[in-house]
């Protein structure tokens, strides 16, 4: 299995601890009934970074976030957020964090500006109108200041939720799947907002199950699967460490190609299992050599190759290498967006 080729980060072999960790979580465990939702997670987040927690639905991302936010007590482990103990003193943590939840969690019958004022009130004093305008501008909702929540689109509601997470000028902002359910354009607008939040001086921790989002938006990523962190690094380093440059894909017409011959092609590191028997997917350290060899092999076996393509390695390949299965398989198997459901039935899929 290619996973052996990669360094699976154990607790002591992880990245050097960032100089000024704003979040430091060690050995987090959370069980629901008999199921283990989070199984020994360590996270260290540096001040001022955009930190992503990536993983398929049910990987334990939301539960991890909830423990760091002080919303749920871990069954084991320690958490410090901005110098406060999130387990013993969640009240202090709440003052210095801002949270956007997966569900929209907005009151009906209030306008965007009224909601911002109200949330300021919950921290002690209603948000002054000037500050509310500033927040609305940051999330691109200046024109919607007087609109009621139910008149906003899904993307606008998400961005309003982010504005609400900023009313107390938090040191850490948590965004739980901020772009789920948004169209590509709204997603890009939200990325810009997230960068704006970071540039405003806050550390951002977000969860996502979109590979592309993690790759383009995050400074560092923890990849979670089945309650564990299986990799933690910058997106570039994760891909580099994979020891592969690209994926070669094709559809095979006529006969099938022998697996042994495919594995022996120059540069091939892995034959990726696919659901479609005619689909071929090879991970390679040398795309050119592999392509040349593959074409010769197809010629020799008199099979036709269609949709031949080579693509640069992505986080998706990293997940595949580490988790031993493709990311899409998970996403298809688990259409429910309920990513914090305890992973009770997962064994079946191994």
């Amino acid at each position: 299995m290619p996973a052996s080729a990669l360094v699976r980060p154990a607790a002591d072999s992880r990245l050097p601890t960032p100089d000024q960790p704003v979040i430091e979580a060690r050995g987090l465990v959370k069980r629901y009934g008999g199921a283990v939702a989070v199984d020994g997670v360590d996270l260290v987040v540096a001040e001022g970074e955009i930190f992503g927690i990536l993983g398929p639905n049910g990987a334990g991302k939301t539960t991890t976030l909830e423990m760091v936010e002080g919303l749920r007590a871990p069954d084991a482990g320690t958490i410090r957020v901005a110098g406060f103990d999130a387990v013993a003193d969640p009240a202090s943590v709440r003052r210095v964090i801002g949270v956007q939840l997966q569900t929209t969690a907005l009151f009906d019958y209030l306008s965007a500006a009224e909601l911002i004022s109200l949330f300021g009130g919950l921290y002690g004093a209603p948000t002054p109108p000037a500050r509310a305008d500033e927040l609305l501008a940051l999330v691109g909702l200046t024109e919607k200041r007087a609109s009621r929540v139910d008149q906003l689109s899904g993307g606008q509601q998400q961005r309003l939720s982010i504005a609400l997470a900023l009313v107390n000028r938090p040191r850490v902002v948590f965004l739980d799947e901020p772009t789920t359910g948004l169209d590509p354009q709204a997603r890009r607008a939200l990325w810009a907002t997230v960068r704006g939040v970071r540039d405003g001086g806050a550390t951002v921790v977000l969860t996502t199950h979109y590979m592309e989002e993690a790759e383009t938006l995050c400074d560092r990523i923890a990849i979670m699967d089945r309650g564990r962190v299986i990799a933690l690094d910058t997106p570039a380093a994760l891909i580099r460490n994979l020891g592969m440059a690209a994926t070669v894909r094709a559809h095979v017409g006529g006969d099938t190609l022998p697996a042994a011959a495919l594995a022996a092609l120059p540069g091939v590191t892995t034959i990726v299992p696919t659901d479609d028997p005619t689909a071929l997917r090879l991970q390679t350290s040398d795309a050119q050599a592999t392509l040349v060899g593959l074409l010769a092999l197809a010629e020799a076996h008199r099979v036709s190759l269609t949709d031949l393509a080579s693509a640069q390695a992505t986080l998706e390949d990293v997940f595949l290498a580490l988790a031993g299965r493709t990311y899409e398989q998970d996403e298809q198997d688990e259409p429910a967006a309920d990513s914090h459901r305890p992973p009770a039935k997962r064994g079946r899929r191994r």
Binding site: R94, V99, L101, T103, A105, L106, F107, L122, Y123
Partner: peptide, 13 residues
């Protein structure tokens, strides 16, 4: 259902 109670719980209120 909408997570409003949960949202309130992550504020100091």
């Amino acid at each position: 259902e909408r997570g409003i109670l949960r949202r309130i719980k992550v504020t100091p209120f």
